[in-house]
């Protein structure tokens, strides 16, 4: 070991050190002078990206832009059942139209196929959301003939119960009990319409009530049959089956 220390530096080491020094200074020179310094500047990269992202073109104008010219429609919509919709949900991106209202006109859906995007029945849609079966619900007739798109309501005075119990009505309307009137199961005295909380409609009380249709002796042809004596005798029917949307069809 000692002899190593006092010997002159071996030639290999000087050669390698020289090569290494050359390489290192080359790298340093390139880094400091030969390349644009922005390549190394992370803050610059972040800043330029934020700017680029923030300045991308906007195609949708936003709800506020519509109110400036179309005050009436906006007001009408704000009071109706479509109040949660933006104008651009149905009319499409309005960015260009806002820039030049005469040059670019917006699309206004007038055919059935647009409304059913939301309102066709789908079992995955939340219950109570207004849905129809497009094949059965006035086929071929454009929706806007009966429903005002900016403030849609049922076209005529609603069936009495549905006026207040819309959600149940809409749920029932897509269920296998759709054809049953509310009064098939509930007796609603006239006074219920005046003082709904004081005078209540009746509700079925026992299993035999459902059994009228679903029991073995029923005359209803389509109703599924069960043997009341053997089928879940400890429970009332509606403890398992929701009458307004019974499972199955």
């Amino acid at each position: 070991m000692k002899s190593l220390l006092f010997r002159p530096v071996p030639e290999q080491i000087t050669r390698l050190s020289l090569a290494f020094a050359l390489l290192a200074s080359g790298v340093f020179l390139v880094r400091a002078h030969a390349i644009p310094q922005t390549w190394l500047d992370r803050e610059y990269h972040v800043k330029s990206t934020l700017e680029r992202e923030a300045n991308r073109p906007r195609r949708f104008a936003g709800a506020q832009a519509c109110t400036e010219c179309h005050e009436d429609q906006v007001k009408e919509k704000a009071e109706g059942n479509h109040r949660t919709l933006a104008c651009e949900t149905c009319h499409g991106a309005a960015g260009k139209h806002v820039e030049d209202p005469t040059e670019t006109k917006l699309f206004a859906p007038r055919l059935r196929d647009y409304c059913v995007l939301c309102h066709a029945y789908d079992p995955s849609r939340p219950t109570g959301f207004p849905q129809i079966n497009p094949a059965l619900h006035n086929p071929l007739k454009p929706c806007i003939e009966c429903h005002k798109p900016h403030a849609p309501v049922p076209p005529e005075t609603p069936k009495e119960c549905a006026a207040c119990h819309g959600e149940i009505e809409r749920t029932k309307a897509v269920s296998s009990h759709a054809a049953l009137a509310c009064t098939a199961c509930h007796d609603a005295p006239d006074a219920h319409k005046v003082t709904p909380r004081l005078v209540r409609p009746t509700k079925p009380q026992n299993r035999e009530f459902c059994g009228k249709c679903h029991g073995p002796k029923s005359e209803e042809k389509k109703a599924p049959r069960v043997d009341l004596a053997a089928h879940g005798e400890r429970y009332l029917c509606w403890q398992c089956h929701y009458p307004h949307l019974p499972e199955g069809k």
């Binding site: 071996p10 030639e11 290999q12 050669r15 390698l16 020289l18």
Partner: peptide, 18 residues
């Protein structure tokens, strides 16, 4: 060889150690 030219026994021994 980085233009080195020392092939003395001592240098070769150093190579082996390295």
């Amino acid at each position: 060889s980085l233009f080195s030219n020392d092939i003395s026994d001592a240098a070769v021994r150093f190579d082996k150690k390295a």
